[in-house]
């Protein structure tokens, strides 16, 4: 029985491990790192992006990086407890948006933690209508709202899913003051729930993603399930970096038809609002800065090699490496823009 011998061998290795528990060099990452993520799902985009980066880091630094899908509140708790660099966190813009939207339990990550390197973008955040909907574009939606029609938008509250709705309300307010009151949220949960609301015609517009909803846009108009993209929130440059095949039967070229400048959701009357869902590291505030440097350097090398980009693009993610200092300043900026939008439409 080989398993038995393996166990014996492990036992020998185990004795060696017990003998040297504490990390030798401060600048080096501990040999066993736990990367907690702000999502509970191991099938979602956060997990996938984290797994891609974790694997690359494991190989590069010759350590063991394990991704644990513990969810937002447990991830922050785990990060709070550990300043040795054995627990790192990865999440997306939702990490600070919860705070901006005033969701209970979300701290200001720029104050409480160190925000680290960005690694990738999910460019797929999108808004859709039913294919037989009278709205064929965002302009139609704004016009209807201005004409006093109530537009119900299905979202998940307090995060990435809501920001597009906030931007729509902000744009409506700028173009047709008062019309923003007619764009209302239908708060719901998973993508399944959002789709279902559209199937039931209990929502006029839903938040979705290129990845999850593209096939629905290919269905015939008389199908209850058929949908139409009206807005992809990503920046034009982001989509341009995607593989030209795009997603499913929709090429990147076609997707550009749904981003700015072809679809305009204005932010201030001049510039269009865009939103890329970016994935980045979050570190414990008291963690040795040398560890951050090690991670930055390792990532820089990984991205210089160019293999990780292929992996990311194959899953329709856009590589987007910024070292920690730059990333932190950039994300802080991004959050300020979003803060302004949220406060401008806030009725309180």
């Amino acid at each position: 029985m080989t398993g038995f011998f393996k166990t014996l061998a492990t036992a020998a290795g185990f004795a060696a491990m017990v003998a040297s528990p504490i990390i030798a060099n401060a600048a080096e990452l501990p040999s066993n790192v736990r990367l907690v993520i702000g999502s509970k799902s191991t099938g979602g985009d956060t997990y996938q992006n984290s797994a891609i980066v974790a694997e690359a880091l494991s190989k590069k630094l010759d350590i063991n990086v394990k991704v644990d899908a513990v969810g937002v509140s447990e991830a922050f708790k785990a990060l709070d407890r550990d300043s040795r660099g054995t627990t790192l966190m990865m999440f997306h813009d939702g990490a600070y948006m919860g705070n901006l939207y005033g969701v209970r339990g979300y701290d200001n990550i720029f104050e409480k933690y160190n925000v680290g390197a960005t690694v990738s973008i999910n460019p797929g955040n999108a808004y859709l209508v039913a294919k037989d909907s009278p709205f064929r574009s965002m302009e139609d939606v704004f016009a209807a709202a201005a004409a006093g029609q109530r537009i119900r938008v299905a979202i998940q509250a307090g995060g990435v899913s809501e920001i597009g709705l906030s931007a729509m309300k902000n744009a409506a307010k700028i173009m047709y003051p008062g019309a923003e009151e007619n764009i209302v949220a239908v708060n719901t949960g998973s993508q399944a729930d959002k789709n279902q609301l559209l199937f039931d015609r209990q929502a006029d517009v839903i938040n979705g993603s290129v990845q999850a909803n593209e096939q629905f846009t290919q269905l015939a108009q008389d199908d209850q399930k058929a949908m139409r993209f009206i807005w992809v929130t990503a920046r034009e440059e982001t989509i341009k970096q995607a593989n030209p095949e795009g997603m499913g039967n929709t090429t990147s070229e076609e997707l550009l038809g749904y981003t700015t400048p072809n679809v305009s959701v204005t932010i201030d009357g001049k510039k269009d609002f865009t939103f890329d869902k970016e994935f980045f590291f979050i570190f414990n505030k008291d963690m040795d800065p040398a560890i951050i440097e090690t991670i930055d350097n390792a990532l820089a090398e990984i991205y210089a090699e160019g293999k990780i980009q292929e992996t990311q693009k194959n899953s329709f993610f856009i590589p987007n490496f910024l070292p920690s200092t730059e990333a932190s300043a950039y994300l802080k900026d991004k959050s300020e823009t979003i803060r302004k939008i949220i406060s401008s439409i806030s009725t309180k």
Binding site: F14, M17, V18, P21, I22, P30, N32, V33, R34, N64, K66, D82, R84, T86, T87
Partner: peptide
């Protein structure tokens, strides 16, 4: 906590 992320606490 002495041997982070190794499962040794359990063991």
């Amino acid at each position: 906590d002495f041997y982070p992320n190794t499962g040794l606490g359990f063991y």
